[in-house]
């Protein structure tokens, strides 16, 4: 495993854990989109079906379980915990996230590396992950401010995306037969969505303003 891949996994891990620990500690999820969190839980659940069929390494298995457990915990906190639930910006978090799922499923049925249940689910999870941040971006745009919680969260997710792209470039040049077009293209789309966010984040930070995304 190369350093880019490891750093990508770690920033991804921290993004989820930091969010979970903060929600647990401050008993608030203000500014966090439940829609995005539910989509991530679906992404992990559909991608890691191979937990039951394939063993890659202890590292892979443990990381998969931690990602699954922490993302499901976040959803549980936001939906069920009586204090956290109260801080959820329900009226602002209006993105119709269910409408993202069907197109991703259709796309996965059409474009996959192999037409098997596991591979279609794998492709579905990649397509869904690419767009899962959209409800969060819409919520940021609505509330027009970014606090430390959401700022760090999206920053860590962005770092994760960047490291994974470096990992793919590194592996392409150092390994034979390492070609994953579906992963690369959906990963690139996802990173571009973050890039859009970063542009406005840094712009507002430079001007010392509250974050304001274009309507």
């Amino acid at each position: 495993m190369n350093m880019f891949r490891f750093l990508g996994d770690m920033t991804h891990l921290f993004s989820v854990l930091v969010l979970l620990l903060k929600i647990h500690t401050i008993k608030s999820c203000a500014g966090i989109s439940l829609k995005t969190q539910e989509l991530y839980a679906i992404v992990f659940a559909t991608r890691y079906l191979d937990l039951f069929t394939d063993y890659i390494s202890l590292y892979n298995t443990v990381m998969k379980l931690v990602y699954l457990g922490s993302s499901l915990s976040i959803v549980w906190y936001m939906r069920r915990h009586k204090l956290v639930r109260r801080s959820y910006d329900k009226d602002q978090d209006t993105f119709r996230h269910h409408f993202l799922i069907l197109p991703c499923l259709i796309l996965a049925l059409l474009i996959n590396e192999k037409f098997t249940f596991m591979e279609v689910m794998w492709a579905f999870s990649l397509y869904l992950e690419a767009v899962a941040i959209l409800p969060q971006l819409v919520l940021l745009q609505r509330t027009r401010n970014i606090d430390n919680l959401t700022g760090q969260y999206v920053f860590l997710l962005g770092a994760y995306r960047s490291f994974y792209i470096l990992n793919w470039i590194y592996r392409y040049f150092t390994e034979v037969h390492y070609v994953h077009w579906i992963t690369w293209i959906s990963g690139l789309v996802q990173t571009l969505l973050y890039g859009d966010f970063f542009y406005y984040y840094f712009h507002s930070w430079k001007n010392n303003e509250k974050l304001q995304l274009p309507a």
Binding site: H12, D54, M118
Partner: peptide
């Protein structure tokens, strides 16, 4: 139905 494609990334 095992996975014969090598998806070793997370």
């Amino acid at each position: 139905e095992g996975r014969d494609l090598n998806h070793d990334e997370l």
